[in-house]
């Protein structure tokens, strides 16, 4: 069936089977392979994207259910060559090794800071409790999100 979804501000229309998952709809769109497809069971969080501003697991959402909704993926974080503070925070605090969990972590972090610009470490840990990293442990990721929170205001001013 014909489905039309706003992805990163652009209308993406395609004829798909109703059973197609959002993660595959996104990844089959040219240039949008940043969203990772991991456990396929809504446990690992690698596939997290924002749906109308809220983080959702795109491996457990049908693309047809997103018709008429706005999806944001990791590709939308960088604007005109300038990284989002959460991306810079991951770079500064060495919050990734293999990078597989990173897109989901970044989008989960972005949604957290949009709702709560000054989260405690516990609030950060709770927010990312649905996202699994098998390389770094979580210390550097929490530290990176704190870094982003602290630099958000100044980073935005520079833009």
């Amino acid at each position: 069936m014909q489905v039309s979804i706003t992805v990163n501000g652009e209308q993406v229309s395609r004829d798909i089977e109703p059973r197609q998952l959002l993660v595959h709809f996104i990844r089959e769109t040219p240039g949008l392979t940043g969203t990772h497809w991991g456990c396929d069971t809504s446990n690992c969080g690698a596939c997290v994207v924002l749906m109308d501003g809220k983080p959702v697991k795109s491996c457990t959402t049908l693309a047809v259910m997103c018709e008429g909704h706005e999806i944001r993926t990791v590709e939308s974080l960088e604007v005109d060559g300038r990284l989002d503070p959460v991306q810079t925070g991951f770079h500064e605090r060495h919050a990734l090794q293999c990078g597989f969990c990173t897109p989901g972590m970044l989008m989960t972090a972005r949604a957290l800071l949009d709702e709560n610009p000054d989260p405690t470490d516990l609030e950060i840990r709770t927010a990312i409790s649905g996202a699994i990293c098998r390389c770094t442990g979580y210390k550097n990721i929490v530290s990176a999100i704190r870094w982003a929170a602290e630099h958000e205001a100044s980073a935005k001013q520079e833009v």
Binding site: P55, K57, T61, T108, T126, G130
Partner: peptide, 9 residues
């Protein structure tokens, strides 16, 4: 119950 991302849905 589950995690905050799942709780959104």
């Amino acid at each position: 119950i589950a995690d905050p991302v799942v709780r959104n849905r």
